[in-house]
């Protein structure tokens, strides 16, 4: 039964992924020749996921946007080194993650630079509030908004590699193999990181996840 249900879905997904892989690789081969339009297309396609990743890694919207832009600067400048056999998103998120790690290391060397962050960390409120697009939906959405904040905070407090694995796992185009490749670990270790991160989140958010409202 499951094969009947999932067969066409899986086929469509595989097809979409293959198309995606091809189109990104094609765009990158054009970028390598200095095609600005191809580069613009890649930036437009991936700026949102890269920014989402950066903001949840750094907890600072302006730094995250700067880092997301730097990621694309690196893509443009290192286009010659990109190997078309590799999937573009793996390469892209590897760059983004390395830049995030550099920034996190820089902050740890210069704690004064992130004084605001540490002050904010000591409070209960999350450092940044992502806008909730459903905010105007009424009282139920208020609790959703609070839940989003709690989830953001719980994700922020995960160890870096668990957080990275979990955030990349959100990206539908990233397979577990690709997540493992970005983190530089084995497939089983990547899955284990995701599992442990989710277990921590479940433990922390247990009272808020009981409603069944999130089932779909």
């Amino acid at each position: 039964m499951r094969n009947l249900v999932h067969g066409p879905v899986l086929h469509t997904l595989v097809q979409v992924m293959a198309d995606c892989l091809n189109s990104d690789a094609e765009l990158m081969s054009k970028v390598r020749t200095g095609d600005r339009e191809a580069f613009e297309a890649l930036v437009t396609k991936y700026r949102q996921p890269v920014l989402n990743f950066a903001i949840r890694m750094l907890h600072d919207p302006s730094e995250a946007e700067d880092l997301a832009q730097q990621t694309f600067v690196q893509v443009w400048k290192s286009a010659a080194r990109y190997q078309t056999a590799a999937k573009f998103t793996t390469w892209l998120f590897s760059i983004a993650r390395n830049l995030c790690l550099n920034e996190i290391r820089r902050r740890s060397r210069h704690p004064a630079d992130s004084l605001d962050a540490s002050e904010q960390d000591s409070e209960d409120a999350p450092r940044f509030q992502l806008p909730d697009p459903r905010a105007e939906e009424g009282s139920v959405t208020t609790s959703r908004s609070e839940l989003f904040d709690l989830v953001e905070q719980a994700i922020r407090e995960l160890p870096e590699n668990q957080r990275t694995a979990l955030l990349l796992c959100r990206e539908e185009e990233m397979s577990y193999e690709e997540i493992a490749s970005v983190i530089g670990t084995s497939l089983s270790a990547a899955k284990s990181l995701i599992f442990r991160g989710r277990e921590t989140l479940k433990a922390r958010l247990k009272p808020y996840l009981k409603t069944g409202d999130w089932m779909v």
Binding site: V43, R47, Q48, L51, N52, I55, P61, A64, E65, A68, Q69, L130, P131, D132, P133, L147, F148, V151, E152, L166, R170, R198, L201, K202, L205, K206, L209, K210, T211, G212, D213, W214, M215, V216
Partner: peptide, 21 residues
């Protein structure tokens, strides 16, 4: 609980992208 966590993670709102990104 497992499904609820997956649901809430997938529904986390996107960060706002500046128009001149």
């Amino acid at each position: 609980q497992e499904l609820a966590l997956s649901g809430v993670i997938h529904r986390l709102p996107d960060a706002p992208v500046s128009s001149n990104f």
